[in-house]
Structures are given as structure tokens and as C-alpha cells.
Design a binder for these strands. Sequence first.
DNA 1: TTGAAAGCGCTAACAA
DNA 2: TTGTTAGCGCTTTCAA
Lengths: 336, 336
Amino acid sequence: MRAKKKVSIKDIARLSGVSVATVSRVINQNGRFSEETRRRVEKVIKEYHYTTNMTGKSLRESKSNTIGVIVPDISNELFAEIVLELEKYFFRKGYSVLICNTNEEEQKEAAYFRILESKTVDGILCISGSEDLPQEVLSTGIPIACIDRRPKGKNEVVYVESDHYLGGYIATEALIKKGCRDIMILSKQRALSVNTQRLNGYLDALRDYGIPRRDDLVVHLGDDLSNFQEARDIVFYMIKKKIRFDGIFATNDWRAYGALVALQQNNIAVPEQVKIVGFDGVSVSEFCYPAITTIQQNKKELALKAAHLLLKMVKGETVPQRHVVLPVALVERGTT
Amino acid sequence: MRAKKKVSIKDIARLSGVSVATVSRVINQNGRFSEETRRRVEKVIKEYHYTTNMTGKSLRESKSNTIGVIVPDISNELFAEIVLELEKYFFRKGYSVLICNTNEEEQKEAAYFRILESKTVDGILCISGSEDLPQEVLSTGIPIACIDRRPKGKNEVVYVESDHYLGGYIATEALIKKGCRDIMILSKQRALSVNTQRLNGYLDALRDYGIPRRDDLVVHLGDDLSNFQEARDIVFYMIKKKIRFDGIFATNDWRAYGALVALQQNNIAVPEQVKIVGFDGVSVSEFCYPAITTIQQNKKELALKAAHLLLKMVKGETVPQRHVVLPVALVERGTT
DNA sequence: TTGAAAGCGCTAACAA
DNA sequence: TTGTTAGCGCTTTCAA
């Protein structure tokens, strides 16, 4: 392995007969050098394939042109799409992204926050996950932006989210308008604002349409199995217990799909006997049969808005708004 | 924004009344300090929440404890799952991962190679994508490992891949054994080894079973639309042209699903009239209806093997094997 | 067991 | 227009 000795700014300086300061000026277009010098230096740079060592630069400038992205699970399509958009945006702006999967483990998340700090990332973008951010990180002054994660406390963290309340409301409303009266909600145990907002939307829609709330239809799934499995099993169980329902609002598409499968296994016709609405708009909702009616999140906009705000903070500019809520849309498909 | 001044090793040294060298020794457990000193230093470190600045360390040691992962598109489930495993593994080993989407753009890939080099990543892991690696990068001596991407040339790049030839063979064989005689292959235009190997497996299976090859059934999809759309459209077209076929080997699951949809739109029964086998084993194959028989790639093993080899190279150890081929498995489902 | 000092690659303040 | 120099935070050699 011929680990070629990297050529440094010093080498370029020597080779082109100027000082390192001048080379630095040429590289960074800082003026204060002659045309003639520029040509000479650039020639040498090209000739020796010099590229600036970002570690040195980072140390000197105490910034890294790197953004840390904290995400529960990159293999979750919703998050993967957001990360894709983030990466594209940051790349255009000259930033790299460090990807940090937490698997929802608080410890791993905390570890990553420390790592990101020690690597002097310029900003941190958190997608989903727990509501509270480690105090230590907040006090470092590293700008933080969140997507679909409403950070606790009145700190200077920016966040962008879909209108989960509205989503819950229109999902439920859609079911009601299709004639459902006994609407189950498949929500999550964890008391994240995302969950409670969707639940509130559901409850308010019921109230507005004069449908009494049935507590036995408010289901909180655990965290042990996949969303798909949890939902399938619980719906299966509800059917066996002969609990009456004619509509299901599943607070994500995989849960909706799990419900669909449970119904099909029990020969309950969808959408004839039971209707379903999901949430997120990931591909399973589009490609299963029947395709699932869902509440579409605008992943691209979510990513772009958050990234944009974060970069503003990184550059020390004032952000116009600390909290952005994006609309969601009902996509009607086969299950309603 | 109270951008707290970070406490450095110098501060710790001053505060605990020793030299920075000693603090460094304590931190890195390098011996050469007394118990008493250790206690004092560690106390101060804890008290002031000191964490080492990795940029300084990286500069000094010319390594960054960071791995660059180059991937065509992180929102592709296959890649996302591999990246997830990579991240988990590298995290355990104390490395962070920089994610680099190329969108199959050569330019972006080249740019990323340069960036990774300038950030002195310790290693680069390339998933899929083009066969040739930029010469510049190879000459830097940064260890490189590839997954499902067979690098051209006899350089010291390690690669791990699924047995794509075998996959193509058993996919085709499965169709033949179910009675198919006119088997279409939906392959890709780009002459990547992944594609040619799968194609070769297909051709050899036909030959071994004495089935004459029909060139009109060897279809090479372009890059313009999504795999799903390209496949759906071309199969639709083949049906309209009344080209005779009773089996389809789609070289990935989304293409298989596209084919399935085209057949269903034309009221052709699957698997009764036409059978389909996909490739990869991503969720669409499992959740569409009927579920698609597919060739499963062992994503986790792919990731682990490659990451393991890469880390060996990073540490300067000799790698036992430069080229690893992992088995694939036929998963029989509803389309055969 | 400890410290002083050099130096990794870079930028910027200051001097010329 | 250019150079000298200090210093970012760290590790490591050498000397004590």
C-alpha cells in the first residue's frame, strides 16, 4: 500500500516560491496577490494535485463544514427520504453529513451528541425521536434543528413539522364522511407530540361530528415488535374479541398495512366492511392491495425547510421563524 | 446564543496543575502517570465536562475515525438497510460515517471522493454504482471496500458481493421448473457486473435446461424512469405487441412489481398465465399482492463482511481475502 | 513519573 | 503585494 505522502500547503508554497500565506490567499480567493502569483500557484496546485486538508482548516477555523443528522432508523423509508433530501441540500451548500442512527436508544443518541460535538460539527439536525434534547448539547451552542420532533423547553432550537393535528383530523373526518361510526385509532404508547397531536385531531374530529368517543377503540401500540406486526396482532385480537368497529385510523402506513392484513385474514372486506386511513405516505401504502388511503407528509419540504433554517443559524443569521408547520394532504385510495 | 468557550486540554492541564502531556497520557491511558495524578486529572475533566476535540486529534494523528460511505441513493431500501448495518458496526468500533449520495452522477461521486480525501477519512465504503473508481482516489492510499460493485483493475480494493450469477441461475431455474418456457429477463442497460452476472446466470440456466434463448425476451431497461415504471411500461408494450412469454425474471423487485402491475392491468393471471421472480428481497416483494418470489440478498452479511475487511485495512492488517461472494436464496412466494 | 517543545495543516493579524 | 509568525488542540519524542 503506497500511502503517498500527501502534499501540503507548505509544499505548494515551496514549490511555487511563495509563502504559505500567499498560497492560502490564492486558494481562498482572499485577494492580496498578483495575477502572476495566482497563475504560478495554481499551476503548482494542479500539477501536484493538491487539495486542502480540511482537518487543518477545521482546527484553525473551528468549524468542519459537516452537519450531523440524527435519525431513529435510516432504513425507515420516511426517514431515508428525508435524509436523502437533506444530503442533497447540504451537498449543494458545501456541507457533508454524518449519519447517526439511534435505534431509539437514548444512550446511543447521547453518545452521538457527544461525538458530534467533539467533531465540531457546524450544526445538528434531528429527525423524529424523543422530545428532550440532552442539556449538555444545548449548552454547547451548536445550532440544532428538528424535524417532526418538538423539542422541550424554550431554548433556541428550531423545529419543522407536519401538521399532525390536522392530519389526524382529516383522516378521521374522511372515515366519518365515508360512513364510519366506530373508528379505531392505532396510535403509539410513547407520548411524543407527533402521537398526541394525531390523537387530538382524531378526538376533535369525532367531537365535531357528534360521534361519541369509545375508549376501547383507542389503541396504544408498544415498541416490542415492528409497527406492522403490532398492528396486525392487535387488530386480530380485537376481531376475535368481537369488538365492533368499522373504520381504522392507523397513525402510520405500516400500522395501516398490519391492520389490513389482519382484516383480510379474517375475511373482513376492505373497504366494504371496514375502512382504513394511514399516515405518512410511504410506498407500502401505494403498493399493497387494496392501496391504502393515507395522510401524505411533504418529506422534501420538511427536509428543505429544516436544512435551510439550520444553515441560517450556522451562519449566525437570524432565523425568521423558530417553528414551521407544513400542511398534509389526504390521498384517497382503495381502503376508503 | 451563548457559544460557550470550549474547554481544551490546556485548561484541564492548568486546572489540575499538570502539563498537557500528562493530561493526554491520562486520557489515552498511556501509562507514565501516577494514580494520584490520574485521579486529579479525571476529577477536573469530569468537573468541567471536558471532551477531546477530535479535530485537533485528527490533525495530529492524520486519521479521523470516520468512514465515508458512497451510495447511489439512500432512499433505496436495499441500500438503506446496508447503510444501517454499516453504521451500527462502525459505531461499535468507534467510527462515524459520512453519507454520500451520488444519484448515480459520476461528477458527484468524484466530488465526494475528493471531499472524503480532504477530510482524511480513514476508509471508504462504496455500495453499488459504477465499476471504475477514480484513479486519484486509489493513489491516495485510503483503503476502499466495495459492496455489489466490482472495481475494475487489479488494485488493492476489496469487494464483497452476492452471488449474482447464482441468483440469476436459480431464479431462471425456478421459473423453468414451474413450467415456463418463454422467459423474459428485465435487466438493465448499464453494463455493471451485477447486471451481466445475473444475465449470465439466466442464459446458462436456459442452456442447461435446453431452452433456446429468445433475443426478443432479453430486455434492457434504461435509466430515465424509476425501475417500477420502466418495467411496467415495457411489459405493457410487450403484451400489446403480442410477444409470447410465460415467465419473467426481473433483476430487481421493483422491476418485478412493475411487471406484475402491467400484467394485472391486462388481466393476465399471475402466477397462472405468467410467473415472476424478482431480486433483492426488499419489502415491496413481500407486501404486494400476490407477493413476489424473489432472490434474497443477505444485506446484513454483505455490510458486515465489507465493513470488517475495510477496518482491517484501515488498521494496516492484512486482509485474508480480497473478494468475498455471499450466497443468495430463492424465496418462493405468490408469483410462481 | 513528569514536563517542555515540536509539529500536524491551516488561516489571519501584523509587518514590511 | 508578500512574508513572518502565532496559534487552533492534540500527541509524542526527548530529556529530566
